[in-house]
Design a binder for these strands. Structure first.
Lengths: 220, 220
DNA sequence: TTATGCATTAATGTATACACAAATGGATGC
DNA sequence: GCATCCATTTGTGTATACATTAATGCATAA
């Protein structure tokens, strides 16, 4: 069977519950509660919570339980700033790496899927493909630490996206940007790949932050 | 007395031992050993190790003990790439923030101290002031998550610096760069602050990586 | 009525016990 | 002599027990 430890199970279960909104941002949960809910003892739950705390998903406060970190508009601004810089660097590095068309297949597929989803008005499918594009882009940048930092930040974004996805304008410019980045990487143009992606992310940041502020999600 | 938990004690003790080279990179240590050495049970040691693992300082591998992460030249290249982007962003944001001269006092002091240390040929003092400069720069950028990521990365750099500090050329250009960045921030010139710091870090990166590669520190 | 102090309660931090699984060494067969 | 299998050992993962300490509520006094 799955050679999965209880700690690992706890980490994915808690993550899932957090992303699904079952554990809402700002809510507190005793170690014992969570342990019982997950059918294990406190020990693995505590260790899982420590890991999630290191990723900024929860905060452990003595005697007040495990708090699901709230995500404010200010937090999102911070996070997008980091994503903007690091993903843009990844794009540039990917361009420098002289990948073949075959190496870039996943990227191309993601772009096609986003187009299709946009045509079908399927925002969930679009978000999934968008995620895939960005994840692959970072992978191609070949910096393991950068990938890790970005994935932690993207986890936070995902939590806010559940709320905002259906409020934002159709991501049409977005697909155009992705295509330009893809082509720049394919022909080894690091500068264009970097700058285009940078502008892309910055626009997304400004849009999202404005949206969150307008809807008073200062503490989500 | 000190309201410090055993976990906190374990974290700082282990960090100190790692930075001091008492626990050399690549070495393995059983949880029981460390627990005995620190005079506590396995539980807090385990929790401390989990935290340090999240920061990339150690790796926990079942039955093989807690391994002090080695730092290779490739790792350093990754780390400096991240530092370059994030610190440059912090420099730009600091410039945008329109700080007063008084707000920038710590920065100015650090620069003066570096000059003095350079004149006195005191490399340790120079490194300390350099650290202070970069830490303050990031703080002025006002992005808590960025500060955290940068501080984790800088911890890794510090480990390698112990080895390389006395091999590198005198950091003369470095001081000049810092001064330019400082002045750009003082007059609110985000672009110059960003670009100058970016070039500064990139040069440091190339120098350090070349040095590490030359000396075959592929796995430190 | 409100503030203050104390007793109570209960959650965490830490120690310890134990089962399981992986690594090790030796014995056996080729 | 070398490889393979099994017994043994040992470290970890998890459960549990317990002491400490902070929060809560109640009583008392201003």
């Amino acid at each position: 069977m799955g050679a999965m430890s209880n700690v690992e199970r706890a980490v994915s279960a808690l993550r899932q519950m957090i992303f699904a909104g079952e554990l809402p941002p700002g809510s507190d949960h005793l170690e014992t509660e969570l342990a019982e809910k997950l059918g294990m003892s406190r020990t693995p739950v505590r260790e899982a919570a420590l890991m999630l705390q290191a990723q900024g998903l929860v905060e452990m406060r003595p005697r007040r339980g495990i708090r699901i970190s709230p995500v404010s508009a200010e937090d999102m601004a911070e996070i997008y700033d980091i994503l903007t810089e690091l993903e843009s660097l990844a794009a540039a590095r990917a361009a420098e790496a002289q990948y073949s068309k075959a190496d870039l297949a996943t990227l191309a597929t993601a772009i096609r899927d986003m187009d299709a989803a946009l045509g079908a008005d399927d925002l969930r499918a679009w978000a999934e493909a968008d995620d895939r594009f960005h994840r692959e882009l970072v992978r191609l940048g070949r910096n393991a630490r950068l990938s890790m930092v970005v994935s932690v930040m993207r986890d936070q974004v995902r939590r806010a996206r559940a709320t905002t996805l259906f409020m934002r304008p159709k991501p049409k410019q977005s697909n155009e940007d992705h295509r330009v980045v893809y082509q720049a990487i394919a022909r080894g143009d690091a500068q264009t790949a970097h700058d285009t992606h940078h502008a892309h992310r910055q626009a997304a940041r400004d849009m999202l932050v404005a949206l969150l502020e307008k809807h008073q999600f200062h503490g989500l």
